[in-house]
Amino acid sequence: MNANIRDADYSESDSIPAERRRLTPGMVARQAVLLFGVFLALAPAGYMLLTAFKTKEEYLFDKIGLPDALVLTNFSEALVQNPFLLWMRNSAILAIGAVLLSTVIAALAAFAIARMQFRGRDLLLSISTSLMVIPPVVMIVPLFVLYTRLHLMSTFHGTIIIYAGLITPFSVYLLVSFFRTLPTEILEAALIDGASPLGVLWRVVIPLSGPPLVTLFVVNALYVWNDLLIALIFLQSDDSRTLMAGLSVFQGRYNNQIPLTMAGMVMASLPMLILYILFQRYFIRGLTAGALK
């Protein structure tokens, strides 16, 4: 599976055969379809961005045009009156915490599943893999009641455990597939040198696992960052609110100030947009990693 992904990257050659450069009707049609797709993909973001720079009065009369001037007050007002940075920090803590916890647990288990013999191994992998498709909403009610009893509501560690649980089946699945592709000789050589299994995992396997680990980080962090349901239910206090839950409060508070709302949305989109621009290939690779066998 991962071999495929790597191949896919290598085959992205930039050289365009000469026949494809010619301006044929087919080529024009294809370009037209793609340009239309680009327009559709960018229109809402463009609307968001343009509106964020308009004044409330300007928006009343001109909803689609360019802003008269680049008014930054929407941004400053949204930022001053709302703890965007706190929300982002909270989302980041949850995303990083859950991804780290999940990756450590998944790496240990995936190593054993991929490289050791033990009873129940295949069953464990099957169960873990099937859990990937159980919708989170199913687990919420008992966890809500349990967390209230254990005083874990509105705590980061409590919610990190839930998120880690939800993303771990995918982590296990991906790492097992990858660990199975590693050449056995390297591992055996390390063992003969006297390393313990954990030592092999830590000093030999993990250093070789850069690509799948980056993939896991991207996919799982994106999942936690974007989640609304769990955040709404399990992080109810002000100081633990995540960005997505914060946005639901934010839109209700300013639903009569659309330009201000859009300024907030622009700021909320920035962290992921920046990461995307910096690590584009990992995003695209990561999102397809689970699907290609």
């Binding site: 968001m48 946005l247 989109s269």
Partner: peptide
């Protein structure tokens, strides 16, 4: 088919996915 500019198209087409659902919904 590697139409000219396909990499740029791919990069742009990906943008809706970078915007979180609550942001998309509100906008």
């Amino acid at each position: 088919d590697r139409v000219p500019g396909w990499r740029i198209y791919r990069t742009i087409v990906f943008i809706p996915y970078i915007l979180a659902v609550p942001i998309v919904a509100v906008v």
